[in-house]
Amino acid sequence: MKRLAGKAALVTGGACGIGRAIVERFAAEGAHVAIADIDTAAASNLEAELGGAAFHVRLDVTRDADWGGAIDELERRHGPLAVLVNNAGINVPGSIADAREEDWRRVHEVNGLGPFLGCQHAVRRMRASGGAIVNVASVRGQRPSSGQVAYCSSKALVLNLTESVALYCGEQNLPIRCNAICPGVVDTPLLRSGFAALGGEDEALLRLSGLQVMNRIGTPEEIAAAAVFLASDEASFVTGAAFNIDGGFRIRDQ
């Protein structure tokens, strides 16, 4: 039996990387998926690959009106929103000594305001019929680095937001669960785009693999597997939780 059969789901940043893997797994598990992304060309290509299991919709997660339009389109096609995955995110490196104000603001707009607006719209839409919200945070929200001050702060925000939303829904007796996934280092196009700065592919993979207890980097598919669980009825007693899918990154003493 397909674990997400018939569920209407929206995945932000769904055109590539972790988001793409989540869209593909959701579709394979029977969900009707909106590939919500600002990159409409990549989202359109993925829609063509998946056929009738998914469709693309342009969404700038920092714009409230875009959220309303994207969810309206999903519900017009497939019924009430049942699953939201807040996956879209960016990272602009910089320490407290050299980070620029404009970079701080942009990272927090995408990584913080985006999930806030998504959660707010989802709670309003799911109030009667219920559903699941999955926020993609990061182990950097738990174990920060000095060179990613904006990113680490924004992902800590996502973890706190997740708990606050879960508490609200519980206190209001709403049939809505809200959980977070904290990936470690994952093999995505965004990660590989920075390999040159780390000495090339071989050197970068060696250094990044060593950050995990398991001595390798993760795959988008491994993050998607956790998203399927949290979106499904198998996680019916799970809310306000943070799932570390990180190969032991957080506990590594280095």
Results as ranks from 00 to 15, higher is better:
239 T>F: 04
29 E>P: 00
103 D>L: 09
146 S>P: 11
27 A>T: 07
214 M>Q: 15
175 P>I: 08
224 A>E: 02
71 I>H: 04
57 V>A: 04
3 R>T: 03
82 A>T: 07
115 P>W: 07
128 A>E: 09
125 R>N: 09
220 P>R: 13
233 D>K: 08
155 K>P: 01
177 R>A: 03
235 A>C: 14
229 F>W: 12
177 R>Q: 08
239 T>I: 09
195 F>M: 04
219 T>Q: 15
49 E>S: 15
103 D>C: 10
43 A>N: 00
83 V>P: 02
134 V>A: 03
202 D>F: 05
18 I>Y: 03
221 E>Q: 15
56 H>E: 12
51 G>L: 10
36 A>P: 01
42 A>V: 00
15 A>R: 01
112 G>S: 15
61 V>S: 13
219 T>H: 15
216 R>L: 12
132 A>T: 07
179 N>C: 14
44 S>Q: 14
192 R>Y: 03
10 L>E: 01
76 R>W: 08
104 W>K: 06
249 F>T: 04
111 N>W: 02
107 V>T: 09
170 G>D: 01
138 S>N: 06
116 F>E: 01
245 I>K: 09
31 A>G: 11
130 G>Q: 02
220 P>D: 07
90 I>T: 14
179 N>E: 13
38 I>L: 14
168 Y>L: 14
175 P>K: 11
2 K>T: 13
11 V>G: 05
125 R>L: 08
95 S>M: 12
228 V>R: 00
140 R>E: 02
197 A>V: 02
120 Q>M: 12
220 P>H: 06
230 L>T: 11
154 S>Q: 02
38 I>Y: 05
41 A>T: 11
174 L>T: 06
98 D>C: 08
172 Q>F: 10
135 N>T: 06
27 A>F: 11
210 G>F: 11
42 A>R: 10
28 A>I: 02
39 D>K: 08
80 P>N: 12
174 L>Q: 04
235 A>R: 14
54 A>F: 11
171 E>S: 12
111 N>Q: 01
89 G>Q: 09
43 A>L: 00
57 V>I: 13
237 F>G: 04
31 A>D: 10
201 E>Y: 04
8 A>H: 12
83 V>R: 01
10 L>Y: 03
124 R>D: 07
105 R>F: 13
1 M>E: 08
36 A>F: 02
206 L>C: 09
185 V>A: 07
213 V>F: 07
232 S>I: 00
78 H>G: 09
239 T>L: 01
70 A>F: 02
236 S>W: 01
170 G>I: 06
175 P>Y: 05
79 G>C: 09
129 S>D: 05
114 G>F: 05
48 A>F: 12
6 G>K: 09
12 T>R: 08
145 S>A: 12
50 L>W: 09
241 A>K: 02
216 R>F: 13
179 N>W: 13
201 E>K: 13
149 V>F: 04
184 G>T: 11
213 V>N: 05
9 A>E: 07
254 Q>I: 14
185 V>W: 06
107 V>D: 00
141 G>M: 06
32 H>R: 14
107 V>H: 01
94 G>A: 10
126 M>S: 12
245 I>E: 12
150 A>G: 11
176 I>S: 03
120 Q>F: 11
147 G>L: 07
190 L>F: 14
179 N>Y: 08
176 I>G: 10
